[in-house]
Design a protein around this nucleic acid. Structure first.
Length: 284
DNA sequence: AGTTGTGTTGAAGA
DNA sequence: ATCTTCAACACAAC
């Protein structure tokens, strides 16, 4: 599941591999994922445009093009972007893996490269925007402050918590309109590291607990970026390779396994229709 | 073999 | 308003 660290890994890969390259053509067998324009119009808009830069806001990918257009890509659950270089024989093995075989869109690039979009469940979306209208578009989407934005301070975090006193912290952390970037994996990990149960109301959290959640959010997200994300299931980087954070998960997807800290059996609970994983002895 | 769970988001319903 | 449910879709696990 691509959350902030996985998207950040993709963004840095894209900037390293395809910044400045020219799109020669575009192919899709699932144009439904392309929002706002027909496939034909979209193809026309792609041809002979340069990819200037990749950017990230929360889990959202922004690709700035040379025609004052910006591509907004959301990977949703199973989307991932692969960069292939036909002049290199590298990564054939990764790309052959089944999870990388659900290619529904291809940007053909110069220098023998392609940007290929694999998406098993086909929930991902591609939106073509005027770069000028970007800030308006993002405001409309109600994307909250990025969890790694330097403006996301402890003071700001407290203001956000106090604005939603009755909300459960486990639900709050997942709400992209408040803070963007945290998904199901990292909310369980952040709350475990902070010793706080997901069903605690914001108003019940004392200053020490708030501080721990705030600090662990940055700490865990940055460590996960360093480890190139969590490949618990479908996620792969632009080489089609696995991330490594799944090796150090403390609670996520570890139902009925023993807590790595205290040996208590990890439990799975449902919160807002989604699973959350807890150690009832480490978290209060 | 049919049912259920999976997680992200937007839209619809209450 | 805010919460809950569902739908988008494919597949693995039961």
């Amino acid at each position: 599941m691509p959350e902030l660290p996985e998207v950040e890994t993709i963004i840095s890969d894209l900037n390293r591999k395809i910044k400045g390259v020219t799109i020669t053509n575009f192919w899709s067998d699932f144009p439904k994922a392309i929002k706002g324009v027909t496939l034909e119009k979209f193809k026309r808009e792609m041809r002979e445009k340069k990819i200037l830069k990749a950017e990230r806001v929360g889990k959202n990918i922004l690709l700035h093009l040379s025609n004052d257009k910006t591509l907004h890509i959301h990977l949703r659950m199973t989307g991932h972007l692969l960069v292939k270089d036909k002049s290199k024989k590298l990564n054939q093995k990764n790309f052959a893996e089944k999870v990388n075989q659900y290619i529904h869109h291809i940007w053909k690039l110069d220098k023998n490269k392609t940007l290929e979009f694999s998406d098993l469940r086909k929930f991902a979306t591609i939106t073509l925007l005027d770069t000028d209208s970007l800030s308006e578009y993002l405001a409309n989407k109600k994307i909250g402050i990025d969890a790694l934005d330097s403006k996301f301070t402890f003071v700001k975090f407290n203001q956000l918590l106090d604005a939603k006193p009755k909300t459960l912290i486990g639900i709050f952390l997942l709400d992209q309109s408040i803070i963007s970037g945290i998904g199901n994996i990292y909310r369980s990990e952040i709350l475990f590291a902070s010793g706080v149960l997901p069903k605690r109301k914001n108003e019940s959290l004392n200053k020490i607990e708030r501080k721990k959640i705030f600090e662990n959010t940055e700490k865990i997200l940055r460590l996960a970026i360093k480890m190139r994300g969590t490949s618990d299931s479908d996620y792969r980087d632009s080489d089609g390779a696995l991330g490594h954070f799944q090796k150090v998960l403390m609670v996520y997807n570890r139902e009925r396994q023993l807590c790595k800290k205290c040996g208590t059996i990890i439990k799975r609970e449902t919160l807002g229709q989604r699973s959350v994983f807890i150690c009832s002895s480490c978290q209060k």
